[in-house]
Design a protein around this nucleic acid. Structure first.
Lengths: 235, 235
DNA sequence: TGGGTTCACCTACAGTGTATGAGTAATCAA
DNA sequence: TTGATTACTCATACACTGTAGGTGAACCCA
């Protein structure tokens, strides 16, 4: 009877985080870490659909099935890659005097990391973010908002609102920028022109839309932050 | 030389909306509409990964390649299915006296539609929402917010903030509820317990998290709406 | 030295999206 | 009514996917 991969179990969502990486006895060729960084590189170059186990293995000079010793399946690999992106968010070591600065720093850092890896925002919106790096960043927002006076369900709601806004905005931005950027825009304009009677307000404002993404993001973030400030109590 | 599918072109994102459905001369077996509703049914039953062209064709008593006469490729089919979900949002025919009621109605309707089709929220976050149904709903929010005093870039930023929050919240909710709901939660708790020292605030609040999704959603929505109210000017 | 573990490899399978071309039935022009 | 054209379905085929199962070599500890 051969050895069974007892660690790399079935494909239960979120189960990666219950599993330690294989302990490396003496510098094996493959490591979970090496695999994940290679996966991020492939994802950056070819997007989510462009990551196949065989192609990833090729970049590591290894056969595809060897990856399954270190990673249960492709989906878990995506979890790990995504958490690696969260690891790139760098936050101030100490909290600022004003909670709003902290939250703004988090939003900016998260947005930058997600935009730097265009595949990541869509992924972040579609699965529980419970990797260690994601949790560490969450902790930062939680403490910042707790300092603002939030507590209990309001605290988690506020934190969720902040993350949600950044992730969704980054996902929309990357979605619009992907591939031929003119196409989606032409489709939109075409549609609006043909039925401008139905969408008068939209038609009047769509052209100004989608020009300066960062400005767009900042305005929306300001709305949210002002709303939070009204509830938090503290300044 | 056989006829070429001149309409169903290459896989350019957003290009579905530039293409009319095939004109039905006399009740053909397959219709774009029939395909899309069947696709929604399969998606509802098996999720995004469960939708294959062959399986969809089977439910229509048709061969897989026949679908490509009416739909360019799988990706466009997803675009169409998603827009069909947006079509299920029913909004008040006339605008309410208070803009906030309109926006709240939109948020509730969108959330309900996305949750009714668990595959849809993740999809909505990952592609431009420019289908006719999506645009019609956008128009509603735009006019409501315009009535609140928003204009120019602020208007589109406000509208985006509203949609973003609903989509991201619905995506998170469905992601957590998918499959074995206990697993992600156990992974989170396990992680928090093992390193509670690193995540004190998170550890203190996580248990209360993820219980009442609707309450969670409403609180966050209130934060955003209050923030908008502070900027809009009008009541 | 022997036994057990670690881990990369090979083979194989069922399934995927979709390009291409052939075939059929309905329509239109004459 | 005839012939040509279009609208549409089907069949074949290809390159590629994730991953289960088993094999064998290198290493560790006894």
């Amino acid at each position: 009877m051969t050895s069974k991969p007892t660690q790399a179990g079935p494909a239960v969502p979120g189960a990666v985080w219950l599993r330690e990486p294989r302990p490396a006895r003496h510098a094996p060729a493959l490591t979970r870490e090496r695999i994940v960084t290679a996966a991020v590189a492939v994802l950056d170059g070819s997007g989510e659909a462009g990551l196949s186990m065989r192609r990833l293995a090729e970049t590591l000079d290894v056969h595809a099935t060897s990856l399954y010793w270190h990673v249960a399946n492709r989906d878990e690999l995506l979890d790990l890659a995504l958490d690696a992106v969260f690891g790139e968010i760098d936050l101030p070591a100490a909290h600022a005097a004003a909670w709003r600065d902290d939250v703004a720093a988090f939003m900016g850092g998260l947005r930058a990391a997600l935009l730097a890896h265009p595949w990541s925002a869509a992924l972040a919106g579609s699965r529980p973010l419970i990797g260690p790096n994601a949790l560490a960043r969450s902790e930062f927002v939680y403490t910042a908002l707790a300092g603002a006076g939030f507590d209990g369900p309001d605290l988690s709601a506020a934190a969720a609102a902040v993350s949600h806004h950044v992730i969704a905005a980054a996902a929309t931005e990357t979605a619009w920028r992907h591939g031929d950027p003119a196409t989606a825009r032409r489709a939109l304009n075409d549609h609006l022109r043909r039925s401008a009677a139905h969408y008068p307000t939209l038609a009047a404002h769509a052209p100004s839309l989608r020009n300066d993404w960062e400005d767009h993001f900042d305005r929306a973030a300001a709305f949210l932050l002002d709303g939070l400030a009204a509830h938090g109590g503290h300044t």
